[in-house]
Design a protein around this nucleic acid. Structure first.
Lengths: 108, 108
DNA sequence: GTCTTATGTACCTTGACTGTTACGTAACTG
DNA sequence: CAGTTACGTAACAGTCAAGGTACATAAGAC
């Protein structure tokens, strides 16, 4: 849980997960869609691996990464404890946050 | 979203949120249940405030913090894109990964 | 074997994060 | 008004994270 949330805190890593949600990809492919160099991507992948969010399969010289969504269920579980709270608020305020038009919240 | 996930990445801050889920609390009360000194708590509270996860009400010298769960809905929204994936896996594997029972997801 | 491709690791640098102590400030107390 | 209470901010130190360059390794291609 700790490692998972820590892993999710980085945008590059979330982008990789979003990509992998559409299907497996090699490290190189993932690197191609990010503004950072390959070694950086490798490190991100390691973080994701250690968080259990991806798994690797070796295919010749390539490493094919696939999503392993189970740890996200754990986060979802934690989040679930709050779900009733915001739903109640949403119900009360008729605000649409979790929908397509998330307005930017302007802090305090 | 970025700020929210970043805020959630720290355990102390999650503890504070968990506490606030039971009801409002003053900065001092929150500090009392954490192993860190007050100024540190103040900074954590600022992070939570900037992420829109808490709001403050002034009561004499005290600052009463309350949970503001809406930003969590945004995270839940993002997470929702993966929900089908892990459910499918869980269904296939009958595995208990999230170490509990996350059966109940109240009508999306 | 030698070369190329694909990817990870080592090492270094910079910047962000976390916690501490010291200090400033607003509000109640007497 | 002087003192206390409850917080926040400033300044500082130690740690961690993220990116880059250079290098190592493993597996095909020739």
């Amino acid at each position: 849980m700790e490692t998972v949330l820590r892993a999710l805190a980085d945008e590059s890593r979330r982008t990789m997960l979003d990509t992998l949600a559409h299907g497996p990809a090699t490290a190189g492919e993932l690197a191609g869609m990010l503004p950072i160099a390959r070694p950086g991507v490798s490190r991100h992948l390691r973080v994701l691996r250690e968080a259990g969010l991806v798994e690797v399969r070796q295919d010749a010289q390539r490493r094919v990464y696939s999503l392993r969504p189970q740890p996200l269920a754990e986060v979802d579980d934690w989040l679930g404890r709050y779900r009733a709270l915001w739903e109640q608020r949403l119900d009360a305020l008729h605000t649409e946050i979790a929908r397509g038009k998330r307005e930017q919240r302007s802090a305090t």
